[in-house]
Amino acid sequence: MRSFFITLLVLLTGSFSMYAQSGNDELSLDAGTIESQFEYVTSKSGNYNAEGRRYEVVRAIWLDKLRGNVLDSLQVGRTEAAALSGTITSQQSTIDNLNAQLAETTGNLEAVTEEKDSMNFFGALISKASYNLILWSIIIVLSLLLLFFIFRFNRSNILTQEAKTKLSDLESEYEDHRRRALEREQRISRQLQDEINKYRKSK
């Protein structure tokens, strides 16, 4: 039984070593992410102890390769960042243009709505409510003026008729007075003539 466990432990250890070896073989400085390349360098580096300290030994060519890969990745990142910045700037410009067009469209819509809800009154745009108020005020004022002038006309007509009636009565009185005066004058003339005739006969 004990030998079985020992055999099983040896097999598991061997399998783990083979798996670790195959995993290390998949890591490379020519492919993969920067993190996997660091893992590759760490796994391939040697170590030793000196004066109670542990040192890792890494090949200089690996460090140069890793540094070049890091710089390339940084350059790619900067390029992508610049491209993204340009895209953001372009999109922001597009957004600003759309906002300007939206503001212009909104202004045009408000102007059309205001013009639709307004009336042209002596060259000025006023609301329909104000236009109706002004129009009805003018109509009421003109109606009142018309009624006033009709009243004045009727009053003047009545006064004219009264004046004509009084004038006619005055003319009638004058004609009667003239006729009576003429008759009195004629009577006095006859009396005077009679007196003259009497005087002549008495001589």
Rank of each mutant, 00 (worst) to 15 (best):
D64T: 06
R54K: 15
G46H: 02
G52Q: 08
D72S: 13
Q37E: 05
N49P: 00
T79P: 01
R78M: 15
T42M: 08
A81E: 15
Q92H: 05
A50L: 06
S28E: 05
R54V: 12
D30K: 05
R67I: 00
R78T: 07
S90K: 09
S45I: 01
A83R: 10
D30V: 05
L63M: 13
S85I: 04
G86V: 06
N49T: 01
E35H: 11
V70F: 09
Q37W: 01
A31M: 04
L71A: 11
N49Q: 07
V41Q: 06
L71I: 12
L27I: 03
L63K: 07
G68C: 13
K65R: 14
G77V: 00
N47C: 01
G52L: 08
N49I: 05
A81N: 13
E39W: 02
D30A: 12
S43T: 04
S36F: 02
W62R: 03
K65I: 03
I88F: 11
R53N: 04
W62N: 08
I61Q: 07
R67E: 04
Y55F: 14
S36K: 06
S28R: 15
A81G: 04
T79I: 06
W62G: 00
I61E: 12
I88C: 09
G46D: 12
D64H: 13
V57C: 03
